[in-house]
Amino acid sequence: SHLLLTEPTPLAANQDDSTNDGSLRTLLTLCDLLNRELLVLIGWAKQIPGFSGLSLVDQMSLLQSGWMEALLVGVAWRSQGAPGDELVFAGNLRLDEAQCRATGLADLYEALRHLTAKYQAMNLSPEEVVTLKAMALANSDADPVDCPDSVQRFQDGLHEALQEYESSRREQHRAGRLLMSLPLLRQTADRAVQAFLRLHRHRCVPLHKLLLEMLDAKA
């Protein structure tokens, strides 16, 4: 219930108007949205029980490692049942396959639709979505870890909450199924990071400082 309460209100995209190039405009709009979502995500992380008790080094490691996974849980959740198999980055930023291809994000589109279909088939509840998002951050296999015991306790707390929630619904296999979906999320996030790094390096798409810093941490 704490995670449900601290779940941030979805952001709206601010349409970029610095260029006449339509696909570049879409990209710049998306990158601006991502940068603002990152800011919100960092504030959200601090509110997850146990996160602020971690050392600053470990907080940084977990975020640098798990930020894209946590953001993509939101995109995949919003994209469920979207008409035309669109990716719903924001209520006012929905990209279909053709738009993603035109902006150089065909690979990201395919990976994210796959993740969205997986979540849709699992019929996730809002409780499961917020827990999955927090677990993606906690389970990021960040290295080096400053205080492994504290990170472990942070992970255990989330795992316990998930198990308690699922046992209250008398769903004995759900917790395991959710955990088994984490590798696909990791894989999807890796492809997303590569896609944005490619855009930046090969097409010189300018990125905001925070987004660039977080992408660099993964490069």
Partner: peptide, 15 residues
Amino acid sequence: KEKHKILHQLLQNST
């Protein structure tokens, strides 16, 4: 740490 100064600053801010 210098490389990740924005994240560092954001985490140090109280809210």
